[in-house]
Design a protein around this nucleic acid. Structure first.
Length: 753
RNA sequence: GGGCGCAUAACUCAGUGGUAGAGUGCGUCCUUCACACGGACGAAGUCGCAGGUUCAAAUCCUGCUGCGCCCACCA
């Protein structure tokens, strides 16, 4: 096959890897730091995927949308930086490695901290960050040599610097608070990492005897074991049923203490339960606040692993759930149980481990949020940063207006160690140095704080830490603030809000002028993709093709294949009639599909049939070119449209102009769906169905006995067709970069004639 | 308890104060000269329900119904 001939059907497998290699070789994704570079700048920080991650549909969406923006600006002549990276993902990664150790019959404590962390680095070197390889299959045109890992030395320096400055400014403090504790991972969690899940439980009632044998007071609870930490029972001040008990004391049935009856109009709703509330200040947020109001003792009853400590009296050593049953039984045995009824409740679960978290009193590091939140709110209110789709602005405002202090310490080993040192006298020295020997206050020997920082602390610095901050590098001055930040709406609070706060605080300017948010990719019926549901699709299977056996094995690992297949086909009705599997749709078809969904949709139901439709579109592009190429020999293509006299030629040039504006507008407004629709319609209906058909009689030569024409009309049409195709390839390129590159390289274009 | 959003053709979704749109699917026909990953023609919607504003509403407003998401410490 010569240069100017094309295969009859488009085969992405042949084309795509070839051009990716070419782009890398030609270094076309690189941004330029040089202050003297006169071009305008477009900067897009890439959301760093977890080091443990592998490409899923959400990543595919992110890569696609961002690559479209980036390629588009690059083609417009911007000095474009798409900065990629990887997140160390503290708790997620630690969990992965701990599971490995468990399989090997050991654990991190046997290994020791230093060895454990080494082990994670080893793992990272071999299998961590595989996802960045997979991103390349999507055509991701990031400036790869600038890839940052949040645990790199430079990133760590930035993290320490940020911590120290916030500490010195009084915005980071250490405090003893009621926090959420994950008993399995054995670490504190921030509020955002706790998911509240509705559940069916019971409301159990039991009686406290009044001291001196004057009757009883019945309370209701969903967590009977917490009664071991009760330090009061509260009633409503104006509840006539309990007036006679005001000021009395109650006898604890299991531990040697009496507790007061207190009145509290905030905690107690007389309508609920018995109207009397047991108060456990150390294990419940409402009770904690009540305890503060009344000066109650806070008795922690739990060990860090969720078993009961010595305060549990006869129940000490039991797991919290075992203790729950045992306490109920013991209350029954003492004749104090007063029955139970079914009750709908909300269980707080750890986002990561899935276990029910326990409120516990603990000393942790916090960031004071309000002083940081206010400028972040102001930046959006003033329009310095715009959130698109705009409806998210209210959600952002609501979050930042009601924000609580951020607990940033984690009892993990994998992460940025907190740069604080403790001496035996209890002084704390916070330092930028790697290590410290003497207390800054008294000079005694010190040890470093055992804890690490929340992963999101380092990612909150991403827009500037990746550019060399705190050093004043050329990259930092060139590329901060970024132009856009594009990501899924699910991390608006976790990540975007925190970058806004940190960016403004440390750099004095909001980190980006626009925040672009897309929805969650879900299955075709609208269900969230999950391994449990068996509806996960690996984007690479759509690109490369895969039998349903393979697809289903990944969707529902370990399940019987026919059962898994049934589930899968229920989740993707349009795949049900597809025979044995997915054909190789190619990266372009998948990208065009993902871009075609409206970004304001919160749920993006992935439809295999839709991908198929856009694969057909790619084939259409291919064949249109295949038809046109033989007629383009000797075409003159300039940067501006050729002068046209024939109606058809003038018409297609005007349509080209219109679609150019549609595509441009769609990209600028982050309405890529409108851009894809416009491009599809232009190419298929206007260019192929109408214009190409109209050119046939002008060119002639289609039948054996008909000569190819070479008159003015044919020459004008040739030049217009060449110009139009070349321009169409450039318009389509950000969306479907592979096929357009393949074709464009074969087309006559400015400077090649 | 607060907040946000959605309801348009069989499916998935755009859309606009002035005669209802796309893709896919469906029906009939066509392997004819770029493409059957194609072409031609066609069927298909009381734009959730009820009010209101307007010359005009599917589009704006109010209420209702249904669905979804987020935030929140009711024992």
């Amino acid at each position: 096959m010569t240069d100017r001939e094309l295969a009859k059907a488009y085969d992405p497998k042949d084309v795509e890897p070839r051009w990716y290699a070419y782009w890398i070789e030609e270094n076309v994704f690189a941004a330029v730091d040089d202050a003297a570079d006169p071009r305008p700048v477009y900067v897009l920080p890439m959301p760093p995927p977890n080091v443990t991650g592998s490409l899923h549909m959400g990543h595919a969406m992110t890569c696609t949308l961002e690559d479209i923006l980036v390629r588009s600006f690059r083609m417009r002549g911007y000095n474009t930086l798409w900065l990629p990276g990887i997140d160390h993902a503290g708790i997620a990664t630690q969990t992965v490695i701990e599971r490995q150790l468990k399989r090997e019959g050991t654990n991190r404590h046997q290994l020791g901290r230093e060895r454990f962390v080494e082990r994670i680095w080893e793992w990272k070197a071999t299998s961590g960050g595989r996802i960045t390889e997979q991103q390349r299959v999507m055509g991701t045109s990031a400036d790869w040599p600038r890839t940052r890992f949040t645990m790199d030395a430079e990133m760590s320096r930035a993290v320490r610097e940020a911590f120290v400055r916030l500490y010195e400014e009084g915005l980071i403090y250490r405090g003893t608070r009621l926090i959420y504790w994950d008993c399995e991972a054995q670490t504190v969690l921030s509020n955002l990492e706790v998911e509240n899940e509705p559940a069916k439980g019971e409301l159990f009632e039991f009686a406290y005897q009044v001291e001196g044998g004057e009757g009883e007071l019945v309370v209701a609870t969903t967590r009977p074991e917490t009664m071991l930490g009760d330090t009061a029972v509260a009633v409503h001040p104006s509840d006539p049923r309990y007036t006679h008990l005001h000021g009395k004391r109650l006898v604890h049935p299991f531990v040697n203490r009496t507790i007061p009856v207190i009145t509290d109009g905030i905690l107690v709703d007389p309508e609920f339960g018995t109207g009397a509330v047991k108060v456990t200040p150390a294990h419940d947020f409402n009770d904690h606040a009540t305890g503060k109001r009344h000066g109650l003792e806070e008795i922690s009853i739990l060990n860090l692993d969720g078993t009961l400590n010595a305060e549990g009296g006869p129940f000490a050593g039991m797991d919290r759930f075992v203790a729950r049953k045992a306490v109920k039984k013991a209350l029954e045995d003492k004749g104090l149980a007063r029955g139970s009824k079914p009750h709908d409740l909300v269980l707080p679960r750890s986002e990561r481990s899935g276990t029910i978290v326990e409120p516990m009193i603990s000393t942790q590091w916090f960031v004071k949020m309000q002083p940081l939140a206010e400028p972040a709110l102001a930046a959006v209110r003033s329009g310095e940063t715009r959130i698109i789709p705009e409806e998210w602005t209210k959600t952002y405002e609501h979050f930042l207006s009601n924000i609580l202090d951020w607990c940033i310490s984690r009892q993990l080993w994998w992460g940025h160690r907190i740069p604080a040192f403790h001496c035996t006298d209890g002084h704390i020295t916070v330092t930028r140095e790697d290590t410290l020997c003497r207390c800054g206050t008294c000079g005694k020997p010190v040890t470093q704080d055992e804890d690490v920082l929340d992963t999101w602390f380092s990612s909150g610095l991403w827009p500037f830490s990746t550019l060399g901050w705190p050093a004043q590098t050329p990259a930092l001055s060139k590329f901060y603030p970024a132009s856009d930040l594009e990501t899924g709406y699910d991390i608006l609070f976790f990540w975007v809000a925190r970058m806004m706060m940190m960016g403004i605080h440390f750099m004095g300017k909001a980190p980006f002028s626009r925040v672009l948010l897309h929805g969650m990719v879900v299955d075709e019926t609208g269900e969230k993709m999950s391994k449990v549901k068996g509806n996960v699709i690996d984007p690479l299977d759509l690109i490369h093709g895969a039998t349903f056996d393979t697809v289903v094995e990944k969707a529902l690992p370990g399940a019987p294949p026919d059962e898994a297949l049934k589930k899968f086909k229920r989740a993707y009705p349009s795949a049900a009639q597809m025979g044995a599997g997915f054909p190789a749709y190619g990266g372009d078809a998948l990208r065009f599909t993902l871009a075609s969904y409206s970004p304001q949709a919160k749920r993006i139901p992935l439809s295999p049939r839709k991908i198929e439709g856009y694969r057909h579109f790619c084939n259409k592009i291919w064949n249109a070119t295949r038809f046109a190429l033989p007629f383009l020999e000797g075409a003159q293509v300039a940067d501006t449209p050729p002068a046209a006299t024939l109606l058809a030629n003038r018409w297609i040039l005007s349509r080209l102009d219109a679609v150019t504006r549609t595509a441009r507008q769609g990209i600028d407004d982050f309405r890529l769906d409108e851009a894809t629709q416009g491009l599809y319609d232009f190419f298929w209906n206007e260019l192929c169905s109408w214009y190409l058909e109209l050119t046939k009689p002008v060119f002639g030569g289609r039948k054996e006995d008909e000569p190819r024409r070479d008159d003015d009309a044919a020459r004008e049409t040739r030049d217009v067709l060449a110009y139009t195709l070349e321009a169409a390839m450039r318009l389509l390129h950000p969306f479907v970069p592979f096929i357009t590159e393949e074709i464009w390289q074969k087309l006559p274009r400015p400077g090649t004639a």
